[in-house]
Amino acid sequence: MIEATGVCLRYPDDTLALQDIDLQIEPGEMVYITGPSGSGKTSLLKLFMGIEYPTSGSIKVIGQPITKGQTSGIRELRRMIGPVFQEFKLLKGRTVMENVILGMRFLDLPKGQLKEKAKNSLERVGLTHKALSLVENLSLGESQRVAIARAVARNPVLILADEPTGNLDKDNALKILELLASLKDEKTSVIITTHATHLISREKNAKLLTMDKGTMRWER
């Protein structure tokens, strides 16, 4: 699913965000990436999504090399990913249902299926009753669940969640992590960055990767 060899990432201001990253993540794996703020968790996820390119080393995500000049390939890659952002990135002025459907509109799915898939996703995250609400009227926990529904509805082979619990209280954060963990199957990998290590200790089947000052270490 993801193969990285000797990856370094240096930002234009000369900050070394990642160094010597070697990792392999297989289909159907669940991986938590933890570490303090500024340790490189988000930078790693940005590499996986093709938002950043490695300064050196090589990385392939779902067979797509992440290098400059691969615009259409990276666009294709992103269509196979279900991203969940810390700040949700829901489109304001639109309903919950519209947001979920919008994530599928350009995926070459039959038009008649979009609404059905959106309904199923909302049911999975327990938000069917909010389908027609505007997203700006939702609580933080509900907004995050809409973002997850949008990601799930796309039938992704890789779910990338960047600090999905960052804005939530402990109860809501636990629910969101459980929900994300439930999305993993034999084909779909789930990668979650979080600095809330106390919340992930119970997830024994997941791999745990710790980041520190741009370097990585497998904990389990």
Binding site: I51, R75, R78, R79, K89, L91, R105, F106
Partner: peptide, 16 residues
Amino acid sequence: REQINTLRLLGAPEFF
């Protein structure tokens, strides 16, 4: 711009 950025992150084609 935020909406455009989100659509790009979701893999939307430029014409879309």
